[in-house]
Design a protein around this nucleic acid. Structure first.
Length: 269
DNA sequence: ATCGGGACCTGCTTGC
DNA sequence: TGCAAGCAGGTCCCGA
């Protein structure tokens, strides 16, 4: 998916078009997403949008009648288009707004989801999430404490939403490289000092990517249709076989939790 | 409790 | 040129 910086960029892009508007009605062309689109999402109409927020990689659209949760999965995109714009093949959901615009959801792989919480912020998928990576609640001490006795690879550890949210496959690789930590190292065998470095790297790479408007990957575009510019700053992601920017060694490839990982065998221990 | 793996789905790239 | 295999940003759920 869009990772956290992309979702944050999308939130910033779409929220000015949504807040204060009424939802006239919904158009659901393809209800079979990751889960079937709930009836409450399909049928709600004539309600005012009061807030647009992000929690982890969920976009939360709150109305007087309840809250929609949108997750973009691997290939989901949200755009603002004028009402009447012809839908393309994978344009599955439209939220038609009172200002003549449409929030349009497109998702070729359909790994994303539209969910419904009658009480805002109380959906099951939000219940067990760890802290936001850019908040003060997330730091090296938290990583160190939560890693005690754990033998899983540190890469899958930091990608676990119960530990910290919003660290996806791209930025996990980038942060581990920046911190000089080998992605396969057991989470429980990393010092507190190194976890401080890792937490700082996670914050730094995510903050920088948000500033740049996200990473442009294939079909990712911001809500206004313009690409993000972080891709040109990626140090290891997608660069297996190329030279390490720090030491010149050939970057290696591995697999963790069925996701590919690129790292430097010399810089990362 | 922790973990690794399977599942969901389409489209693009790679290699024979 | 054609076709099959491999790979892609996520994350819930299951069994060991």
């Amino acid at each position: 998916m869009p990772e956290l910086p992309e979702v944050e960029t999308i939130k910033k892009g779409v929220s000015p078009h949504l807040i204060g508007q009424r939802i006239l009605h919904m158009v659901v062309r393809q209800p079979q997403l990751r889960w079937p689109v709930p009836e409450a999402v399909k049928q709600l109409k004539q309600v005012k949008i009061t807030a647009v927020q992000r929690r982890a990689k969920y976009l939360l659209i709150t109305t007087q009648a309840g809250q929609r949760l949108v997750n973009l999965g691997m290939s989901g995109v949200l755009r603002i288009v004028p009402e009447g714009t012809a839908p393309a093949r994978h344009d599955h959901v439209d939220m038609v707004l009172s200002n003549g615009q449409v929030l349009r959801y497109s998702d070729p792989r359909r790994f994303g989801a539209w969910l419904w919480a009658s009480t805002p912020n109380e959906h099951k998928v939000l219940a067990h999430l760890g802290p936001e990576p850019l908040s003060e609640a997330f730091n090296g001490d938290l990583l160190y404490e939560r890693a005690r006795q754990r033998r899983q690879a540190v890469k899958t550890f930091i990608m676990d939403n119960r530990i910290v949210v919003g660290v996806g496959n791209i930025y996990a690789q980038e942060a581990l490289f920046m911190a000089g930590i080998h992605p396969s190292r057991a989470a429980g065998r990393i010092s507190r000092a190194r976890y401080h470095k890792l937490a700082q790297a996670i914050k730094q790479v995510l903050a920088r990517a948000i500033e740049a408007g996200g990473t442009t990957l294939k079909d990712f575009l911001k809500a206004d249709g313009h690409p993000g510019y972080f891709q040109q700053e990626l140090l290891v992601y997608g660069r297996a076989g190329e030279a390490c920017v720090a030491c010149g060694a050939t970057l290696l490839k591995a697999v963790h939790g069925q996701r590919s990982t690129v790292y430097c065998g010399a810089c990362q221990r």
